[in-house]
Design a protein around this nucleic acid. Sequence first.
DNA 1: TGTGCTATTTATAAGGG
DNA 2: TCCCTTATAAATAGCAC
Lengths: 187, 187
Amino acid sequence: MGKNKIDIKKINNKNYLKATFSKRRKGLFRKATDLCCLTGATLAVIAFSPGNKPFLFGHPSAESVIDRFLAEQARCASDDRKEEVLESGSAGVEHKNLESSREEEKEGGQGMDEENGNFWWEEPIDEGLELPELKKYKSLLERLRENGAIKLDEMNRRELCTKDYFGMNWGFEVGSSSSTPSEERDV
Amino acid sequence: MGKNKIDIKKINNKNYLKATFSKRRKGLFRKATDLCCLTGATLAVIAFSPGNKPFLFGHPSAESVIDRFLAEQARCASDDRKEEVLESGSAGVEHKNLESSREEEKEGGQGMDEENGNFWWEEPIDEGLELPELKKYKSLLERLRENGAIKLDEMNRRELCTKDYFGMNWGFEVGSSSSTPSEERDV
DNA sequence: TGTGCTATTTATAAGGG
DNA sequence: TCCCTTATAAATAGCAC
C-alpha cells in the first residue's frame, strides 16, 4: 500500500517504526470511525505505541465499551459458575464489584465530545510509563473460551496468520524505557 | 473503496448493514494485526456488532491490554489525587483494587494462542445480550483529560469529523433486541 | 517531527453463485 | 450466509520539505 510492497513483519529501524506507527494508528482509528459511523457498532480501541504512549478510541466512549465488556465477562462467568468454582481466586471479586456498582444507566452527556459526535479520540500521557499488567480477567476469558461461549475468529486465524505475520520477535524496546520523560510525539 | 464510493453515514438496510459490519470488522482486525506486527504495539480492540455480538482482538491479549489501561488510569488518577479528592465517589475504590491485586507480572504462556502468535481473535457469545454499561471510570478519564495528561487526538477530531461522519442517528436496533437467541453470524 | 505528494498496494462495494 | 470476482476508492511507503 505504497510505492513498494512491504512485508508485514517487525520494523527494526526506529525512525521508520515511529513513522509507521503514527500513520497506521491514524488509519486504524479512521477505520474504526468508519465502522462505527456506518453500522453504529459499539467499539473501543486501546493502543500503546512502541514508546508506550497510550491511545484511545471509543464509541460512544472507550470506557463505556470497556465497562460493557467487563460486565459481560462477569455475567457470562457467573452464568458459568455452576461448572467451575472460581477456584484460582484470580477473578470474581473484581467482577462482582463491577456488577454491584452499576449505579447509573443513563447516557447523560458526561464525556461526550462533539455536539452530536459521541466519539473520543485521545492521546494520553507524555511520560514514559510502564505499569504492570493485571491478570485478573484472564481465567475468566479462558473459561469462556473453553466453554465454547467465545469462539476464535477463524477468518483471522487463517487468513492473517498464514501470511508471514509471525516472523518477528516482540522483545524490543524503543528509545528510553521508562525513566526518561521524553517529549517524542505519537510514539 | 469499491465499485462505488459510499457516504460514511449510518446504513439503514439491515442486510447491507450486516454485510458491511462483517467485512469492515475483518478489515479493522487485519489493520490491527498489521500494526502490531509492524511496530510491536500493544493493542486491543473491543467491538459489539449492531446485533450486540462481541468481538475481541488483542496483542498480546485483549485482557492484558485492558488491564494495563485500567492500571495506568488508576495510577494517573492517584498521582493526580492531590488536586481532586475523588469527591464523586464514582471511582477510586475499583482502581485501588486493581492496583493492589497485581500479583503476578510474568508473561507466562497462559493464554497464548499460536506457538509464537500471541494474538487473540475472538468471536464470543451467541446470545442477544444487553448488559448495563458501568460508569465508574468516566470521572477518572475526565480528570485526566482536564489535567492535560490526556490530549484529544486532533488529527482525528479534525480530519475525520469534518467529513460527514456525524449525520446519522445512533438510536436504532437490529433485528431481535435481546430476547431471541438468534443464530445470525458475525452480526 | 510533521506535512504533502504520488505511485502502488490494499480494502471493499456490488453483484453472482 | 458466505465466498468469489471485479472495478474502484482508500490507505500508505518512500521521498521531499
